[in-house]
Design a protein around this nucleic acid. Structure first.
Lengths: 139, 139
DNA sequence: ATATGTGCAAACTCTTTGCATGGAG
DNA sequence: CTCCATGCAAAGAGTTTGCACATAT
């Protein structure tokens, strides 16, 4: 594990390794409870508070990125993947990464306002939900 | 007050009038607590639960629209204004309407996924926060 | 050995719900 | 007069914090 900026990210524990491995294998940003549910396969005693603590520290260090999509909890994804957007399934509420941002996004904003970043969320139905009746498990 | 679809929206009370008037005068979508705070100028006894109940009914009836922006509570705005996006001030967390969506927004999504709607949020600093030191009141 | 991490439970915030009373129709 | 709406309080969900014990370094 390497920190880019020599930022304090604390000790290398089983819990942290489990959390990072879940996120490394995910195909989109995950919520804290999703992360906890999956990481418990490796560390069954893992508490949700520990997940929140790691997510906060690792996000501050730049190793993870916080993604806020409409509707639910904040989600977390690997921090060094290039700029892109997300697809949020209205039915199962899972989020998926889209391909990178292709077009210049220029929105008129009032004079004097400073745009520092933007978030694009596409909302609809994912392929699995389109074909299935039951709500699939996250992951 | 006219309902478009003859949908049940319930009685015309002081509380409802106060909530709708706050939203009619707002320059952007407001959170339930912002709406409650402002509507209490007209109806001091107004409870937050009543605000939530009206917002749910009026949104279901199409009179209001629910706007989910990154970071906080859902926000509500008048339902019949044309398609547009929002500017969210990172500092005071107030949301403002931008001018309408000028460009076609085409994002590549995985095959089989159905895009039904999208949300664009621009994040940055609003003019007041850029010039002021203190967090301004919502509204 | 020592300082940090962990799990549990409690605190907190946001939102919803149950219930007795108030008020619109 | 009859329901529906209201306000309060309690119940739930999601997130944070305090504390005693466990553990990485």
């Amino acid at each position: 594990m390497h920190t880019r900026k020599s930022v304090r990210i604390g000790r290398d524990t089983r819990q942290r390794r489990a959390i990072l491995e879940v996120l490394r294998k995910a195909n989109g940003p995950l919520t804290p409870s999703e992360i906890c549910r999956w990481a418990r396969r490796r560390v069954p005693s893992l508490g949700i508070a520990t997940v929140y603590r790691h997510l906060r520290v690792l996000t501050a260090a730049g190793l993870l990125r916080r993604v806020e999509l409409p509707g639910g909890s904040a989600r977390f994804e690997w921090g060094d993947i290039p700029h892109h957007h997300h697809f949020l399934c209205r039915r199962c509420t899972r989020a998926f990464c889209t391909s990178s941002c292709r077009r210049r996004l220029i929105e008129a904003v009032p004079r004097g306002f400073k745009v520092e970043s933007h978030e694009v969320t596409l909302i609809g139905i994912c392929r699995q939900c389109f074909h299935r009746r039951k709500q699939p498990r996250p992951g």
